[in-house]
Simulated scan of single mutants.
Amino acid sequence: MRKLYPMMVDLTGKRCLVVGGGSVAERKVTLLLECGADVEVVSPATTARLAGLAASGAVRIRRRPVRPPDLTGAFLVVVATDDPQVNREVAHRVRGAGGLVNVADDPEACSFLVPSVLRRGDLTIAISTGGGSPALAKKLRQRMEQTIGPEYEAYLTALRLLRERARRAIADPHARQAIFRRAVDSDLFDRAARGDAAGVDACIEDLLQAAPRAAAGT
Rank of each mutant, 00 (worst) to 15 (best):
M7Y: 08
M8F: 15
D10W: 06
L11P: 11
R15E: 10
C16I: 09
C16R: 04
L17Y: 07
V19S: 00
G21Y: 11
G21K: 08
G22D: 06
S23F: 03
A25I: 02
E26S: 14
R27Y: 12
L31F: 15
L32R: 03
C35S: 12
C35N: 15
G36T: 01
A37G: 09
D38Q: 14
V39K: 04
V42Y: 15
S43T: 14
P44H: 11
A45I: 13
T46P: 11
T46W: 10
T47W: 02
A48I: 05
R49S: 04
R49E: 11
L50P: 05
A51L: 07
A51P: 07
G52T: 08
L53E: 13
A54N: 08
A55R: 15
A58H: 06
R62I: 02
R63Q: 12
V66Q: 13
R67Y: 13
P68K: 14
D70P: 03
T72A: 15
T72I: 10
A74N: 09
F75K: 13
L76R: 07
V79E: 03
A80N: 02
T81I: 03
T81E: 09
D82E: 15
Q85V: 13
V86M: 05
A91P: 01
A91V: 01
R93D: 06
V94Q: 14
V94T: 10
G98I: 12
D105M: 06
P107S: 05
P107Q: 05
E108S: 12
S111A: 12
F112N: 10
L113A: 07
S116H: 02
T124V: 12
I125S: 01
A126G: 04
A126D: 12
G130D: 06
G131K: 00
G131A: 01
G131L: 03
G132Y: 15
S133T: 07
P134T: 13
K138L: 15
K138Y: 05
L140A: 02
R143E: 13
M144D: 01
Q146M: 12
I148H: 08
I148M: 11
E151G: 09
E151A: 10
E151S: 12
Y152H: 06
Y152C: 00
Y152Q: 00
E153I: 03
A154W: 00
Y155Q: 02
T157L: 00
A158C: 05
A158S: 02
A158P: 03
L159H: 03
R160H: 12
R163H: 09
A169C: 12
A171S: 14
A171D: 09
H174T: 05
H174W: 10
A175Y: 08
A175K: 09
A175V: 03
R176S: 01
I179M: 07
A183F: 08
D185I: 00
D185H: 14
D190G: 03
R194C: 14
G195I: 03
G195Y: 11
D196A: 05
A197R: 12
D201F: 07
D201S: 10
A202G: 09
I204Y: 05
E205D: 08
E205P: 00
L207G: 02
Q209F: 02
A210E: 13
P212T: 15
A214H: 03
A214R: 07
A215E: 09
G217S: 12
T218L: 14
